[in-house]
Nucleic acid binder design. Structure first.
Lengths: 226, 226
DNA sequence: AAACTAACGTACTAGTTCGTACATTCACGG
DNA sequence: CCGTGAATGTACGAACTAGTACGTTAGTTT
């Protein structure tokens, strides 16, 4: 091989590229796509703006590269696969808590997703490699739900995507809307004590929903079309 | 009075101002703060850029004015106050559904909130008039929770802010993350059939959480500090 | 109806921001 | 050890963008 790994070369395409991506991710996450400045990103790296264009061709392509990197790092959700040996109730709770931790640990990613939604996900659509990202989690949830219904633990017929949405919504909101929530309610959802309580709460929530007896006062969770 | 209301004057400060605000809201919601262009906003009104500076002094002040307008329109949540005559279970379910409808109906507002969070709510903090916005809803929830505990319908000791967060998260996420969710899971949460089901689901969810028996598999919803 | 002022339009400027042309240096193969 | 191309730095330009100077018109007041 012609690539001496640990020799710390002065010129190192991979390192430069990686450094640009890293800085760009922070900047885009903090300022949004339009708000981030190419010059600023360049200034925060050890290299120059020239290199950004050398490796990524332009601002938009850099942004897409950042999205792809962020998404690929986040693929580690698939480690959640090992919840399936647990009993259904414990499995879904653990999955919820893993999702919670996952969102907590990838705040830049959350912001990038928010930014993408503001732009109607136009960039995500320009990149392939992203479509099948949801698949694995849904498989896990499906199997947990099936097991739960079989064992009688889960009393409601729930759709896997809905359940995933319910869990994600809770975890995503806590991180994404942290600042306006604090401004309006004076509560910092990121503070350790709240964090711990909310982590339990998301598990309790899904479990209660899936195991709950039909709620009084209206049609039960197993809803027909109204 | 010196103001002929329906006479359709050529020069009308209020109308011009309102038109600017309206267009600005759309533009900021669609492009973000940095992405929105003052020239573009001006072009979409019947007036000129000069007027934006005449009435609002600058881009940032215009943006803040948009935020304030959006928030004040949204104060209508307080109409939810009349859920309190209902039985606790039905009251909290109705509140959840009203919140759902509310988010569904104010998509621009949702986007503005997302944008604010990307910028760490720095603009919201610059405006007063926003701080006490959360108050009323919390009062309603508090009273519903108290009634529910008194009647024995609610078995868990829940915090009003947490409950509000749980409901908001669900409703907010469905609207805010619509686009990436569709890109990743191929499901359009805004489509009528999904909309209706999710609307029931948010009610079922809160009710299940509050009325649920202590979930098997872990500590119950009435959580001590871990 | 004359005078006055709020409301509005035009044309411009200063500064920024993405992108590039051109020169240079380092690393590696022969 | 030297040629060659990948990797990097410098300096610049064209286009955009927020904001403004200055002039004009419509409505109101007296």
């Amino acid at each position: 091989m012609t690539i001496p790994a640990s020799v710390e070369r002065q010129r190192d395409a991979d390192r430069t590229k990686a450094e640009i991506l890293e800085v760009a991710q922070r900047e885009f996450a903090r300022k949004g796509y339009a708000g981030a400045r190419v010059d600023e990103i360049a200034a925060l790296t050890r290299t120059t703006k020239r290199m950004i264009y050398y490796y990524f061709s332009g601002k938009e392509q850099l942004y897409i590269a950042v999205l792809e990197k962020a998404y690929s790092e986040v693929r580690s959700v698939e480690r959640a696969l090992d919840v399936e040996h647990l009993a259904p109730v414990q499995a879904i709770r653990t999955l919820a808590e893993l999702t919670f931790d996952h969102h907590d640990a990838h705040r830049d990613f959350i912001k990038l997703v928010s930014i993408e939604n503001i732009h109607q996900a136009e960039h995500i659509r320009k990149s392939d490699m992203l479509a099948n990202l949801g698949g694995p989690v849904l498989g896990v949830i499906s199997r947990i739900l099936a097991a739960g219904r079989a064992s009688g633990d889960f009393t409601v017929e729930a759709d896997p995507i809905d359940i995933h949405m319910m869990i994600s919504a809770f975890c995503f909101f806590r991180v994404a809307n942290q600042h306006t929530f604090e401004a309006l309610f004076g509560r910092d959802m990121a503070a350790p004590e709240h964090r711990a309580r909310l982590r339990r709460m998301v598990g309790d929530m899904v479990v209660a929903y899936l195991t709950g007896t039909a709620p009084a006062g209206a049609a039960g969770p197993t809803a027909g079309s109204a």
